[in-house]
Simulated scan of single mutants.
Amino acid sequence: MLTVAARLLGDAERGSVERLLDQDPYGGAQVAERISMAGLAWWRQDARIFGYGSRRHLESLCWLGANLIPVHATPAAVAAFAEMIGNEPRGCSSIVGSADAVLGLWDRLAPSWGSSRDVRPDQPLMATSNPASVPADPAVRLVRPDEVDVLFPAAVAMYTEEVGVSPIADGGERLYRERVGELVRARRAYARIIDGRVVFKAELAVVTRHTAQIQGVWTAPEWRGQGIARGGIAAVVRDALRRVAPSVSLYVNDYNTPARRVYERCGFQQVGTFATVLF
């Protein structure tokens, strides 16, 4: 049996790449957004994009930058991607994407890359194309550019709680503040602010022509259990569908039962399963 090797892709294959991404509009959203903005050239992306399959029939993709993201990756493609990058020192902070591909990559990469900080093997990928049937919170709105300093502590708290490490540790504050500011300026950051403090927040971290992907959902601890997240997500979905994309998507840890209930109440349905390996 002939083995098809993975290969580095360039702008000449952008059409094939975009057609493949269209086949996985939710699972491939993170990669699709970046390619739509800067193409495939590694020197523009600060990342490499590998492909698997013949030049006439591209079957699978793998993004390798700050994150390792397989897209539409078959078992054969997973093996080829792992073989190509397994001898390199790990430079990414996570592996994220379709669960089968992520866990398959990790099985092959772990012996050379070493231990992970956490493996989350079951993260429902959910989407909706309709406004939520529950009432939207009218106090949830886009964060203004002059409110970045108000949003920033909540963003740090969310990241630390979700990922398990602070984004401002080891000199990371400037870069993380810039990322929060970019989301605000792009009109992708939402919050409910009471007395100068964020009590609910969420962002559209990824936007493509197919979907707007919600990340960074957080409710202040003292406000939890009061339904604020349900109304907040409903407000984000309503605005995103009206202004940004024809669908809204997200992924959530399987063990986060309260969050899953909120998303289901807001009309989200599972369309796949993600996994994440954190380093």
Results as ranks from 00 to 15, higher is better:
80 A>M: 09
21 L>G: 00
178 E>N: 07
194 I>C: 09
60 S>N: 06
250 L>Q: 02
168 I>D: 04
238 R>I: 04
26 Y>M: 03
262 V>N: 03
252 V>Q: 02
128 T>E: 06
186 A>W: 10
49 I>A: 05
153 P>K: 11
91 G>N: 12
257 T>W: 06
266 C>I: 07
61 L>N: 02
45 Q>S: 10
27 G>Y: 00
177 R>N: 10
50 F>Y: 15
70 P>W: 08
200 F>D: 01
21 L>K: 03
182 E>Q: 15
111 P>N: 10
69 I>L: 14
174 R>M: 06
181 G>I: 12
99 A>K: 09
218 W>D: 03
180 V>C: 07
222 E>V: 14
267 G>C: 06
275 A>C: 11
64 L>F: 13
5 A>Y: 08
253 N>T: 12
13 E>A: 10
102 V>N: 09
38 A>L: 13
266 C>P: 02
274 F>D: 05
168 I>L: 08
89 P>T: 12
188 R>N: 02
8 L>N: 11
236 V>G: 00
165 V>N: 00
108 R>G: 13
241 L>D: 09
68 L>Y: 10
27 G>F: 01
273 T>K: 11
215 Q>N: 13
140 V>H: 00
60 S>L: 06
14 R>C: 09
258 P>M: 10
193 I>T: 04
206 V>S: 02
258 P>I: 09
189 A>K: 00
114 G>L: 07
255 Y>I: 04
181 G>K: 08
69 I>S: 03
228 I>D: 02
171 G>Q: 05
278 L>T: 06
195 D>V: 07
229 A>S: 10
29 A>C: 08
191 A>P: 03
228 I>R: 01
164 G>M: 05
160 T>W: 03
51 G>V: 04
260 R>C: 11
119 V>G: 05
69 I>D: 03
255 Y>D: 08
143 V>T: 00
175 L>D: 15
259 A>E: 06
95 I>K: 05
14 R>W: 09
178 E>T: 07
265 R>T: 06
177 R>Q: 11
21 L>F: 04
24 D>V: 05
108 R>C: 12
54 S>I: 09
185 R>S: 10
57 H>N: 08
267 G>V: 03
109 L>D: 07
224 R>H: 08
153 P>Y: 13
256 N>S: 06
84 M>W: 10
267 G>E: 01
88 E>F: 10
247 S>P: 02
62 C>I: 05
168 I>C: 05
247 S>L: 02
182 E>L: 13
159 Y>N: 04
207 V>Y: 02
259 A>R: 07
181 G>L: 13
46 D>T: 12
24 D>A: 11
143 V>E: 00
251 Y>H: 12
52 Y>H: 14
119 V>S: 09
132 A>T: 04
53 G>L: 03
33 E>A: 10
159 Y>I: 07
193 I>F: 04
96 V>Y: 13
274 F>P: 00
95 I>C: 13
248 V>S: 00
68 L>I: 13
207 V>A: 01
239 D>M: 03
259 A>D: 05
208 T>L: 08
66 A>K: 12
17 V>L: 06
46 D>E: 15
88 E>N: 12
57 H>M: 07
270 Q>V: 14
162 E>H: 14
101 A>S: 15
37 M>F: 14
254 D>E: 14
18 E>R: 11
278 L>D: 00
148 V>L: 07
52 Y>V: 02
128 T>C: 06
